[in-house]
Write a protein that binds this DNA or RNA. Structure first.
Length: 568
RNA sequence: UGGGGGAUCGUCUAAUGGCAGGACGCAAGACUCUGACUCUUGCUAUCAAGGUUCGAAUCCUUGUCCCCCAGCCA
């Protein structure tokens, strides 16, 4: 991550060219402009890394600006979560936190100026009528009957709109551009609408709110944005963006020359297989209680990924690796998993946890005696230290590490078979105890004293090594094994008229309420990540109690045995 | 049948007229007190057809396919 070649995507190349040409004195300023109407998801992470990354690379600034122009869907809760998520991802906007609503006064004044310049008019058409006149592809639209209204009349009506004299939706302010344009965004687009809706920041001060295209171009210019980076679907909006900057007296307002105006650039949004990135559907999952909340570990939200234990560094690495281009991106989730494993392999201390316990009694070990075994916290990084794990006569192993009738390639325990206890001795399965139903409930084993670490015996190799936890010294633990929320690579892809929830993976959460963790894990702080040996990477959940650990599986270890089995 | 974009291994991405490279994935093997990690080897690509050129993924022409746009959402 740190020793990689410098990024050189097409946007950075364009910025380089700007700088080479001396444009804006080389100044680079970007912004990340979320609408606070939901939680940020993995797709936003790409945009955050791009915008903040560019500012960093070119010694510029990146603003966090909330695009809060539609109070009908926006909430304070989302503002707070977005700030938290951007910060957690590792980016700092310093003093450059803004809201489009900070500029509402300026935006309003510019609208009056636009009317006075004869470039905007108040329109009395309903949205249905407006749609009717807008026309269809290939056909020019028709001009609104109010388009020729006098400047004075439009100005008076606009002021009355602001004063709250008209009902919601009854009038709009529209730009006067070109109803015959093949680009629908230029067919006299709406600039302001009437909406009696308390706003999270401005309260009830306004009953009219500016539309995105108009407010966004103005906000960028006011802040001094140089490179306004957005996704591909706004490509068609660029002419309107440029029109606003050209026609509005914004250069005078900012006291900057026209060379300083921002330019918009578009890149392809990212999609990841098996993940959903539609805000509408994510909201639906939360509202229908399909998942616990926005930060459910199965959610592709940044909050969900965080709670699942995904390190911010892994997410940043992922965003770096997928690159930035204009062709549609459908990234395989395996790349995300790879980035997570790579980061966690380096940073997560190892521990032993038995998630599906099978009791083992080592009859050659005396009852009541505990042997402390040395266990390094990381197999290749001694700086991470070590801890002691308790070996006792009775212990638990993973039920899946025993088979009554194992195939040849099964390197684990079976009747009469030998296996090494990780960091401990080699044991041999002498007898199998079954219950009335014929189920295996306990194994009675012997141990090879010479194979005990430090015993100085002849080094002996066995093929299998399994993890285990003492039945006497352990911490009870609830394990939540999360899997992908959707079973289909494209969750939204359902036959016409069917619900995308048909693609839900019924096994996306497996809760194991009575797992046993080695005692060293007791009292681990929420957010701590571990590799549970031979199982996967886990994070301590905030639901953890002092006497009851709760852990979430971040991602499993690669499992070539499982792969081998699935071939048959 | 309007406008705006885009097509390079299965996926993502490099190349900026000069050896189509990397990553993920997959396969085989080595190593191993994690069937992990690591390592080795291998796999598969320039949308098509013409043209320009000593030389084309790159330039030109024609075509094909895919995505976005008709909110008082962003």
């Amino acid at each position: 991550m740190s020793n990689e070649a410098p990024k050189n995507d097409f946007i950075r190349q364009l910025i380089q060219e700007d700088r080479k040409g001396g444009k804006r004195g080389g100044r680079v300023q970007t912004r990340f402009p979320p609408e606070p109407n939901g939680f940020l998801h993995i797709g936003h992470a790409k945009s955050i890394c791009l915008n903040f990354g560019i500012a960093k690379d070119f010694g510029g600034r990146c603003f966090l600006r909330f695009d809060d122009t539609n109070p009908a869907t926006e909430e304070e809760l989302f503002i707070r979560s977005i700030e938290q998520d951007v910060r957690w991802l590792g980016f700092d906007w310093g003093a450059d936190l803004r809201f489009a609503s900070d500029y509402f006064d300026a935006i309003y004044e510019h609208a009056e100026a636009l009317i006075e310049a004869g470039k905007a008019f108040v329109c009395d058409l309903s949205s249905d009528e407006m749609r009717e006149l807008r026309g269809v592809p290939g056909q020019p639209g028709k001009e609104s009957p109010h388009r020729s209204r006098s400047v004075a009349e439009s100005l008076e009506l606009f002021r009355k709109m602001r004063a709250g004299e008209f009902p919601d939706g009854s009038r709009t302010l529209r730009a006067k551009i070109d109803m015959a344009s093949p680009n629908f965004n230029l067919r006299d687009p709406v600039l302001y609408r009437i909406k009696r809706q308390p706003h999270p920041k401005t309260g009830t001060k306004w009953v009219i709110y500016p539309m995105y295209d108009y407010a966004h171009a103005l906000s960028d210019a006011i802040e001094g944005t140089t490179h306004s980076i957005c996704t591909l679907e706004f490509e068609d909006h660029r002419p309107l963006y440029d029109w606003c900057l050209e026609v509005l007296p914004i250069d005078k307002w900012t006291q900057r020359s026209s060379d300083e105006r921002p330019n918009q650039y578009e890149f392809a949004r990212m999609e990841v297989t098996y993940l959903l990135t539609s805000k509408r559907k994510l909201k639906d999952l939360v509202e229908t209680k399909t998942v616990a909340d926005w930060d459910d570990p199965r959610m592709p939200t940044i909050a969900g990924l965080r709670r699942r234990g995904v390190p911010a560094a892994a997410l940043r690495d992922f965003c770096d690796r997928i690159g930035v281009a204009k062709a549609a991106q459908q990234v395989e989730f395996e790349l995300l998993d790879h980035c997570i494993r790579e980061e966690l392999d380096k940073t997560a201390p190892r521990a032993m946890v038995v998630t599906k316990p099978l009791k083992v009694t080592i009859e050659t070990l005396p009852a009541g005696e505990i042997t402390a075994l040395y266990a390094p916290n990381h197999p290749s990084n001694a700086e991470m230290g070590s801890r002691k794990v308790a070996l006792s006569r009775e212990l638990y192993i993973e039920a899946t590490d025993f088979m009554l009738d194992p195939p040849k390639k099964f390197f684990r325990l079976g009747p009469g078979r030998e296996v090494r206890l990780r960091f401990g001795p080699i044991i041999k399965c002498e007898r199998v105890v079954t219950n009335a139903a014929g189920e295996v409930v306990e194994l009675v084993c012997s141990h090879d004293a010479a194979s005990m670490p430090g015993a100085g015996g002849e080094p002996r190799k066995v093929k299998g090594v399994i993890h285990w936890v003492s039945a006497e010294k352990n911490a009870v633990c609830e394990v939540r094994n999360y899997d992908r929320l959707f079973a289909a690579p494209e969750p939204s892809d359902v036959p016409e008229g069917e619900d995308y929830k048909k693609n839900l993976n019924p096994g996306s959460l497996e809760t194991l309420p009575t797992a046993f963790a080695e005692l060293s894990l007791a009292g681990s702080a929420p957010g701590s990540t571990y590799q549970f040996e031979r199982l996967g990477y886990y994070v301590v959940d905030r639901d953890s109690q002092a006497e009851r650990l709760v852990v979430n599986r971040t991602v499993g270890l690669r499992d070539s045995w499982a792969k081998e089995q699935s071939k048959e």
